[in-house]
Amino acid sequence: MPAFHHAGSVVLVLFAVFLPAAVVYSSLPTTLTLERAFPVNKRVELSELIARDRVRHRRILQGIVDFPVEGTYNPYTVGLYFTRVKLGTPPKEFFVQIDTGSDVLWVTCNPCNGCPKESGLNIALNFFDPSASSTASLVSCSDKICNLALQTADGGCSSQNSQCSYTFQYGDGSGTTGYYVSDMLSLEAVLGNSLVANSSAPIIFGCSNYQSGDLTKPDRAVDGIFGFGQHDLSVISQLSSRGITPKIFSHCLIGANSGGGVLVFGEIVEPNIVYSPLVPNQPHYNLNLQSIAVNGQILPIDPAVFATSSNRGTIIDSGTTLAYLAAEAYDPFVSAVSHMGTIS
């Protein structure tokens, strides 16, 4: 979601299961029998070898897939976080804003009405052209993935157009319209000891041919938005459903002066991380906020203000620059901070 405004919400860990490895010690010699995957006298078709290789790549990628993060929190400079994705064959790089409040990955396509051609972020903007990728294909209205889009009211089809299209409207009033494309997403899997395995996987993403509102402004323009919501159309859900990556992602931000950070498909394991459980069965990533304390003193705020209900609750949103509080919590918070002399 564009900076300064509400787009939705964040998840650090959706689901994780760890099975401890069994360790067995024995002084007796052990013999392991090795067998060939294919008998010597069996003719193996190239397609079968490719299929086995794809399965092997999927096993490799069941770990950490790394995306570098750029940008900062500062609303007076960048005010957003973005990463790079490579789409198509040959791969083409795009800068996309990280947004856990929306579901779909989309990038600007050629041609595009109202789309910025320059960016104040010192990045070169790109346009995706499906005809220039040897692996791209358009998603038709009869495709089952289009039915998923229609269920969210984001997708659309008409008698004049057989392509599966979409329209997204964000909380700041900006929006984008386009159509869905299937193509390859390049992945870099971290295997440990600084080893990286390059691979790719087919995904469905949006091809934007119209933008409005803040999306058209060049000062903080990027190539698109990388949605990390819970819907089946999100990239994290698509890759997880195929067994390529786990349905876990981590968004780690570096200190205020450095900016950036890292985004991974997988879990970052650190001993001092404190986890907060998410509220289940919510359209966004909701937390159970219980209270706010200033200088060690809990503020007199009714806990019901933070309760998750229809159009209420506390969400984490990587696409929103500022924190927003309901008036019942905002007023006592500002009053407490003001009495500390930290703001004018």
Rank of each mutant, 00 (worst) to 15 (best):
F82M: 09
G260K: 05
Y179E: 02
S134R: 12
A132P: 00
R220D: 09
L187E: 02
G88Q: 00
N74C: 05
C115T: 03
K247M: 09
S47A: 10
L80Y: 06
K86R: 12
D223P: 04
K217H: 14
G224N: 00
D53K: 01
P303G: 01
V139D: 02
S208F: 02
S142H: 13
S165M: 13
K42W: 11
T321P: 06
D129W: 02
L121K: 01
A3F: 13
Q62Y: 08
D183A: 06
V69M: 13
D302I: 01
R84M: 09
I316H: 10
A136Y: 00
E328S: 05
S240G: 12
S234I: 10
G101H: 03
E267H: 11
A197G: 03
D317G: 00
Q282T: 12
V69T: 09
Q62A: 06
E93G: 07
V264A: 06
S102G: 08
S291G: 08
S199C: 00
N122S: 14
A336E: 00
R52M: 07
C115V: 08
K144C: 15
Y324T: 02
T77D: 15
T135S: 12
R56I: 07
V196N: 07
Q151K: 14
C207P: 03
S142R: 14
F127K: 15
G101C: 04
V294A: 03
G206V: 09
S162V: 12
I315Q: 06
Q297K: 15
Y81N: 05
K217M: 14
S9R: 13
I204N: 06
F95S: 10
D331I: 14
I301W: 12
N295G: 11
Q297C: 11
L215W: 13
R59F: 12
R43N: 14
N74E: 06
L322Q: 01
N209T: 11
I236S: 13
A153H: 07
L87T: 04
F306T: 05
A149E: 07
P246Q: 02
D317H: 04
V196P: 09
S137E: 01
V11C: 11
R43Y: 15
G261R: 00
Y179C: 06
F306G: 00
G63C: 04
K117D: 11
A327E: 13
V107F: 03
V222W: 01
L125G: 09
P29N: 04
L185G: 00
V23P: 06
T320E: 06
S165H: 10
H231P: 10
A136G: 00
L138C: 05
Q211P: 08
V55S: 08
F94R: 07
F67Q: 11
S47D: 05
Q160F: 15
A51I: 04
I268M: 03
R54W: 08
Q230L: 14
A149Q: 10
K86T: 06
H57C: 02
L80C: 08
T30M: 14
M340G: 00
S310E: 09
V294Q: 01
V196I: 14
H5I: 09
